[in-house]
Design a protein around this nucleic acid. Structure first.
Lengths: 368, 368
DNA sequence: TTGACTATATTAACCGATTAATATAATTTG
DNA sequence: CAAATTATATTAATCGGTTAATATAGTCAA
């Protein structure tokens, strides 16, 4: 193999004593009007192997008008905990000789808008969107709708944000319900839900649908149990990084003085922040207080105590999304896929004990 | 813009009343023998904008023999905590109209070998390798060497694994030194280093160079202070995920019964495992025991207490690696870049207090 | 034996850009 | 004023595949 002179299809054809077309078919296995005998195929492949030849995807792409590239756009935070989703996607893509281009959106809709441009300029054959940043003007909705009209397959992950775009997600309402149920079964009755109230208003439909649905699941479970749901708010305005500990302090004060013995939290990171603040206040988890998170993030297994949480089948979600892209490419019909949340019971929850309740009620009386 | 009929360069040329070549030059701004007047350029660009045209990278790639794709291969765990590196890389790539393909290696050298194939089949224009899995047979070394002979730019990140391949990394020896120094300055004298002994033998040169160098920096600082370095081993054989808590138990027992008041740990995850075990044993961090990690992983800011650690300038490391790729492409000489580690002092370390020392010695006597 | 059909192959147009070679007019230089 | 140079453009070959249209030989049925 000489430097700088790559073997091409013509070279293989020459050495095998066949035409370019035969080599192409031998490699792709495609058969339209044109076929190739098993014998010829083997000979071609053998010579190719000897010369270290593999078909140049650049030529193929141009000719087939397919880049063999799929783009994944999504909020940065998703990539931190959802590597398994990416792996799920890639497993499916690899079988089809596709590659994945990833675009990490920041907090602004502009990012996604720009990334949409990048991906389109690259002529990606499909788009997987993992949640969108706040987009009050709906500009991206129009872009995505245009795309679909042009025939580009689009699938969204985790949350239903773009209407009419097929979605692969976990049943978040059910997650909220199951988390609460778990605490109810442990005998808790004073259960709060810690979340960010801005996520719960309907002004930006879809953007924080997961938060809203988790809260609704919580409320449903509480009501069914004849209990009063109570949502406690934290302030996410000054959020930096993933550490909620500081932001969650007032919420935890409310938790402590409100006579609660357990809480479900918007996500694992919030739950960990809550546990940290509880520890700082001398409240022992789970003995004095049970905490549940959502997402089964990496952290949740190694925090102290390890967090009880509701996970998602991340790698399946990714794989399914990728498969849907190909189905859309083949002009097949696809429908939404909603997965059941996966309860992961660790050590941040335990059965209520009566003395705890009494103690916290006393406290309430003193401070109230 | 009609469905399925993409505007191409010829269409723009026609409407602008110029040749294909003129359009090409107007867009690329390249100028060899051929130029285009400012007036023509503007007209072409305006028409292109009106028709929503952007040059098809598939055609361009084929013609220029450049895929405009760079591959990043690396151990899965790197991607969990080093998203900033990827962002650093992408910032630089984007300016050059390049995209990044990521390949997450598992624990086996086979993965990297396979990913090398994938990337090469894709005709990537450059390769960034973020650490390699154990490769006793050195098969990948040969592959990488071959690649470089063929003129493909290769850069490695974090650790020097492939000889002769330019590296961008942090000075790990110095990190070990600084971590230990920090503890010495706080008055600690009984300082251990918790690591995995398999990382320290020289059988697999480079593969765990970071662990080795951190340990060496620790030893150097201890010796300079006239203190006895002591490396304490944990068992990584049964490692699953990122949670070291269980694996680190025997090491923590040694720590407690050996009269130590502080420890540096191979990485943040190990440090967090150590803190969890200390907490389980009723040892308060940092009051009774100080702990230092390495990497400044996401987790280290939200664990309890937040971890003192030595970070790396991840995004700069990424950006530098990407820039080096382009320099290699332009046949320029490049040399290694070694960054200074970044101390991040949080709450897992504090000044030694005398009573702690006495207590731990008592304990030693009791249990010993 | 003839026509239809099948299996296997080739030829040549095409995908959408880049760029070396070439051309022309305008401007500068000696 | 002629020659050289410069600025601005065009023509056509090329990158490395795919595939519709076409060709040929062999098989099978009637």
């Amino acid at each position: 193999m000489k430097f700088g002179k790559e073997v091409d299809m013509a070279e293989i054809a020459r050495q095998a004593g066949v035409s370019n077309a035969a080599v192409s078919v031998a490699f792709s296995g495609r058969k339209g009007k044109i076929g190739v005998s098993e014998e010829t195929r083997k000979r071609v492949l053998k010579i190719a192997a000897k010369l270290g030849y593999s078909p140049n995807p650049l030529g193929r792409s141009l000719s087939m008008k397919k880049s063999h590239l799929i783009a994944l756009l999504g909020r940065e935070s998703y990539f931190v905990f959802a590597l398994d989703t990416i792996k799920g996607i890639e497993t499916v893509l690899r079988d089809r000789d596709y590659s994945l281009l990833t675009y990490y959106d920041g907090s602004w809709a502009d990012d996604q808008s720009r990334h949409l441009d990048f991906a389109l300029d690259r002529r990606v054959d499909g788009l997987i969107i993992a949640g969108a940043p706040e987009a009050p003007d709906g500009a991206n909705h129009k872009r995505v709708a245009d795309l679909r009209k042009k025939g580009v397959p689009v699938v969204q992950l985790y949350r239903r944000i773009y209407p009419d775009v097929p979605v692969v997600m976990t049943d978040e309402d059910r997650a909220g319900y199951l988390a609460t149920q778990h605490l109810l079964e442990l005998g808790h009755t004073r259960i709060a839900h810690v979340t960010h109230s801005a996520y719960l208003d309907r002004e930006l439909p879809g953007t924080h649908a997961d938060a809203l649905q988790r809260a609704q699941g919580y409320e449903r479970a509480m009501c069914e149990a004849g209990l009063m749901p109570q949502v406690i708010d934290y302030d996410a305005q000054t959020m930096v990084g993933l550490d909620y500990t500081r932001l969650v302090k007032p919420a935890v004060d409310q938790l402590r003085h409100g006579g609660f013995t357990a809480a479900t939290c918007f996500c694992d990171y919030v739950a960990i922040g809550v546990m940290n603040q509880l520890a700082a206040a001398g409240v022992r988890v789970p003995k004095d207080f049970s905490v549940v998170g959502y997402d089964n993030a990496n952290m949740s297994e190694m925090c102290n105590p390890p967090l009880t949480t509701l996970g998602q089948p991340l790698s399946e979600i990714g794989a399914t999304a990728a498969r849907m892209i190909f189905e859309l490419m083949d002009k097949k019909e696809v429908s939404d896929t909603i997965y059941e949340p996966i309860p992961v019971v660790r050590e941040s929850t335990c059965a209520m004990n009566v003395s705890t309740l009494r103690k916290s009620q006393v406290k309430t009386r003193i401070t109230g």
